[in-house]
Each structure stands twice: as structure tokens, then as C-alpha cells.
Design a protein around this nucleic acid. Sequence first.
DNA 1: GGCCCTCTTTAGGGCCTT
Length: 333
Amino acid sequence: MRRAAMCFSLSHFPRCRVHTLTNSWWQSFHHINRIGRGSISSKVLAAGKQGLEGRFNSTENRRTLTTKSEGNSKAALSKKTTIRHEILDETTKSEVDIYSSEITEIGNTQYVDIRQAIAENKDLAKLMTFIIFDIETTGLSRDRERIIEIALRDLRGGENSTFQTLVNPGCIVPNSFVHKITTGMVNRPDVPRMGDLIPILLRYVGSRQKPGGYVVLVAHNARGFDVPFLIKEFSRCSFDIPSNWLFVDTLPLAREVMKSGGSKPKLKLQDLGQHYEIPLVGSAHRAMADVHMLTAVFQRLTFDLKLTIPSLIEGHSFWPSEVGRSKKKKNSG
DNA sequence: GGCCCTCTTTAGGGCCTT
């Protein structure tokens, strides 16, 4: 039997480190705010040092797992399938049945604007699952190019908090100089095509979301690049973006933070990483390395902007249907 | 392509994503 490597991996990070950093200060921001600016900085930055730098350098707590599945993933979806995750050093093995989790259906509420409701009801904010994601592609045009790698990371951390896979684009990869992903790496029968991968991706995200909750997917330049690419690929494969997926673009957040800097701000993800002195893990422009970087950058940006979950959702999130529509309306009158 | 900035708004250039 051919053992088809799905080429996606799951990494195990210290449980709740990121969750603690993000959610604790978000939830307690107003409380901490009463203590004073200096106290906020010292407390949160201390948490950041432990949660971010400590995590990145902590090899003893970080175990990379590879995931392999047997058989074609699309065919496998027709029946209950278990994907086995094997730790590289083979000292331990674990199994996760990502097909057993239910994706919560929101019914016909697609594109119903819940952002105002979240702003008015803090309990709804607790139903949010924040997932940082990044894609690598064969180029910049959403119409002509294809996704060749995708990585996600649940901000809560913990076991199976990350998801990473190469994607077979069915064409050559002309821009390997960018991400070091070659045609030979992805044009293989054991690398899933997007149509096979999307159901797995949906199940994974569904396994991370809270019952009845919403998923907030965060990416750098999400509005201009990642989300349009996702929409295009989902559409091409006859899938819909789930109705409970919201998106946040960190590029305008960075622009807002950096605009007071005087000189022309550098807003590339790697520049933001340098600004915040965040160490790079892995190769830049590989999806998971960029996800780890953005995870740290996102938290620093939201801290600098003093954003709570409700204010982030209300003021900085968007639905897929809003992509392609200019956020700022030109004055027609 | 979306967004921001300016030498602007009846526009154009540059950044950001790969």
C-alpha cells in the first residue's frame, strides 16, 4: 500500500503560553489599565519575553510532528479516517482524529454582521478562536498563481495548535528563489492538491473553534493577498469560505503603530519582526516560519494599539464578501 | 489589488503580499 505523505506537520508548543499572553491581557486590559502605563508595560513585556522568546528558543519543549495519511484524502473523507501523527524522533506517537470534530453550523447567518454584537456583548468575544495563517504561492497574481504551502497556528497554543502542509499546484513553481519551495517538492502525487486539502483544512479549523463560535483568521496583508487567494482557491475547488470565518489584516495595524515614527515606516513582516526584536524561527518566507513571526508581531501590535478583542473585531476585521470592496468610500458628492 | 501618501481628490506612485 502506498503511503502518501500529506506533508503537513503539527508542532507541539508549551500549552497556553500564547493563550496566556494574548487572552489574559485582552481580557484584563481594562483592569490593568487602571494600574498605570508603566505597570502594563512591565507586566505584559515580561509575559512576552517568557511566552515568545522563551518559546522560540525552547527546543526541549517543542516537538515537531509530521502527519501522514494513508490513501487519497478526498476518498478518505467518505469514511471516518484517522490521521496518524508521528513525532520525528519516534520516541512518542499520538493520534488525532481530525475528522471526528463537528464544524459548527451558523445556518443562514453568513455575512450577518456580528461585529457590532461582539462590541456590545463581551461574552461573544470569548467565543472567538484566533488563528494566525500564511500562504506561499507561485506568484502574486490571484488569478494566475496557485497556493503551494499553507500554515496555521491557533493562538491558544497547546497540542495540535499548528497545521502546515505543502500543496500540489499542478504547475511549475517559478519563484523558488523567494521561498525555496521547488517544483519537485510539490509536484508529487503524495502532496495534496487544494481540492483534497480544503476539507482537511476545514476539519482542522473546525476542531479548534469553540461551539457556536467564530474563527478569526489573521494574516499580514490579508486583505490584499492571502484572503483573495483563499477565496479564489476555495471557489476554484467549489467550496465556500465558512460563514463563521472573519479575517484580520495586520498590515493596517502595523501602519497605525508605525505612523508616528517619523521616517517612512517599514511594514514588511520581517521588518516588524526586527522592530520588535523577535527572533526568526526557520526560513523566512516559509509559511510556518512567517506564522510564528506574525504570531508574535500580532500580539505586540494589538498591545501597542491597546486593542481589546471587541475593538479589534469591530474596527479591524472583515468578511470575505468585503474583499474587493474599497474600505474607504470616495466622496461622491 | 487594496491601501496610503502627496507633488492629491478629474491622479499617480509606492508599499505589501509570493
